[in-house]
Amino acid sequence: MKRFAFAAATAVLGLAALTACGGGDDTPAAAPQSQSTASTPDAGSAPKLATADVANFGKVVVDGNQRTLYVFDNDSAGKPSTCDGECAALWPPVKAGTAAPQLDGIDASLVGTVTRTDGSKQVTLAGLPLYQYAPDTQAGDGKGQGVLGKWWVVGADGKKITTPAGGSDSGNSGY
């Protein structure tokens, strides 16, 4: 029964994403609000940024749970995020805590924040806002790579990595 429920939920999420991205604009497809797993530190805590080997991308930036982080081509360095609302449900922003981020393998001078439209602070790397991808459910997933030709894993230097996703799945499966 659990296997059937999981398969049904996966099918519904995939179908919803397929329908949502048919609008023809640059806004990414949305995930249901319950899928959002924003990296939001507790009050008084700090986000964690580190590097890890993910897929065939080499060393990329990950959060404290080893979840791959991404940058969005529609964002500009030092400017607020352009991914809000439904977009942020699929691409949860890495929210800043009240303390300085904990870094491992990342130059502190590259890390900052921008203020989102809701007033919260989002962590940036080399000025670009950082995001998770909701379908990345495990450490080392990189399913968001190349989605819409605008979402990219990011290296410790803050530069996007445009290496295609490996294997038969290009990272754009239905999104």
Rank of each mutant, 00 (worst) to 15 (best):
R3W: 09
R3G: 12
A8D: 06
T10F: 14
T10K: 09
T10P: 01
L13G: 10
L13C: 09
A17L: 15
T19Q: 15
A20T: 11
C21Y: 12
G22R: 12
D25V: 01
D25H: 00
D26L: 15
T27W: 12
P28N: 11
P28I: 11
A29E: 14
A29G: 15
A31S: 15
S36T: 05
S36W: 03
A38H: 06
S39Y: 11
S39R: 06
T40Y: 13
G44H: 13
G44R: 13
G44M: 11
S45M: 09
P47S: 00
P47N: 00
L49N: 00
V54L: 01
N56S: 06
F57H: 11
F57I: 07
G58Q: 09
K59A: 12
K59C: 04
K59D: 10
K59S: 09
V60Y: 02
V62L: 07
N65F: 13
N65T: 12
N65W: 12
Q66Y: 12
Q66P: 06
Y70C: 00
Y70M: 00
F72H: 03
S76T: 09
A77N: 05
P80F: 08
E86H: 09
C87M: 03
A89S: 15
A89M: 15
A89T: 13
L90R: 15
W91T: 04
W91R: 04
P93I: 05
P93N: 09
V94L: 13
K95E: 15
K95M: 15
G97T: 01
T98W: 10
A100T: 07
P101T: 02
Q102C: 05
D104W: 10
L110K: 02
T113S: 00
V114Q: 10
T115W: 08
R116P: 00
R116L: 01
T117H: 03
G119D: 04
K121L: 10
K121Y: 03
Q122S: 05
L125E: 05
L125Y: 05
A126F: 01
A126Y: 00
P129M: 10
Y131E: 04
Y133D: 03
A134K: 05
A134W: 10
A134F: 08
T137W: 08
Q138F: 07
A139G: 09
D141L: 03
G142H: 02
G142Q: 02
K143I: 02
G144W: 08
G146R: 06
V147W: 11
K150E: 12
K150G: 08
K150F: 07
W151G: 04
W152E: 05
V153Y: 11
G155E: 03
D157E: 04
G158L: 00
K159C: 05
K159V: 01
T162C: 14
A165E: 13
A165I: 11
G166N: 11
D169P: 04
S173F: 14
G174K: 04
Y175C: 08
